[in-house]
Computed example of a mutant assay.
Amino acid sequence: MVRTIVGLWRWRGNPLCRPTDLREAWLGVCAVLLIVLGAPAAGFAGAGAVESALVESAQQQHAERQRTWATAEQVSLERSVVTDAEAVTPRKDRYRVRAHWYAPDGNVRQGSMVTQRAVDAGDRFPIWTDQRGRHAGRPMTTHTASSHSALAGLGVGAAAVVAVECGRRCGVRLLMRRRYAAWAQEWQRIGPDWGRAGAGN
């Protein structure tokens, strides 16, 4: 990268180097620097912001939800229909369970839920409930929050790379338009005299 910058600095005095050529070269150097340095920085910043928000959400979910035991009343099997014959792993059957459990205030709650665990009527199985005793999903773990934040960081970094490349392409297109306009003006100036003897004198 240093050699490239030094080469561009020396090239600027070349009589064959047009201003648009030098600008295009510097635009490429800036784009590379932004991709190499800016994209990872944006990815780390995005991952950090997402992780802090997800960890806070996970802590809040753990504080608001609790694990309790439910008793199955009715169980129906929902067999998975595999439409892809080339599927590597078959989908597991799911069970729709009608169950009841006790809320923190002692009242009985009832509800229907889907689980992959084989449950028979009368069996007890653990579920998650909110502060009012309503059935809730499993709270997010810090490991899941870290995984999601890493994916978000990769997405932000990739988006930064795409944005820089789009900006570089737009800049090159603008320089090409200016270059063509300069060529057109130059041709209008020397075009009528092209090929005439002594036109350059």
Rank of each mutant, 00 (worst) to 15 (best):
V6M: 10
R134W: 08
H135W: 11
A70P: 01
S149T: 07
A184K: 08
Q61I: 03
H143S: 15
L154Q: 10
A42Q: 05
R196A: 11
E56F: 13
R18C: 04
A45V: 12
A184D: 11
V75T: 05
T68F: 02
N14H: 14
V88N: 02
T71W: 02
G43V: 09
I190L: 08
R79Q: 07
A47H: 01
I5H: 03
W11S: 13
V108S: 10
V55S: 07
Q74M: 10
W187R: 06
A47T: 03
R94H: 10
E51N: 09
S147W: 08
R98F: 07
R179Y: 05
V156N: 01
D120L: 10
R168Q: 05
P90S: 05
D21A: 10
C166F: 11
G133I: 03
E73L: 12
A39T: 08
A136T: 10
Q188V: 05
C170P: 01
I190R: 08
G155I: 03
A39K: 09
A150F: 11
V164K: 01
R98Y: 09
F125P: 01
T129A: 15
A158C: 06
W183A: 15
A25F: 04
V156T: 08
Q66C: 06
V50G: 00
A45I: 10
L174N: 06
M176R: 09
S52F: 05
V82W: 00
F44E: 09
R109Q: 14
V6S: 09
D193Y: 08
R109H: 10
H100Y: 14
D193A: 12
A49Q: 15
V50I: 10
R132Q: 11
A182S: 10
R134H: 15
W9D: 12
S80A: 15
S146N: 11
C17V: 13
A121P: 05
Q66R: 15
I127D: 00
S80M: 02
R132Y: 08
L174T: 07
A163K: 02
N107R: 15
P192F: 11
W194N: 07
H62C: 03
G13S: 13
R117D: 04
F125Y: 09
V161Q: 05
V6A: 14
A39M: 02
M1Y: 07
V75C: 08
R132L: 09
G198N: 07
L175A: 03
A53K: 13
K92A: 12
R18D: 06
S80R: 06
P15E: 04
T68V: 14
H62A: 14
V162S: 13
T71P: 00
G43Q: 06
V108K: 14
R168N: 02
S112R: 15
P126L: 04
L154I: 09
L33N: 09
G137H: 05
A152S: 12
G137P: 01
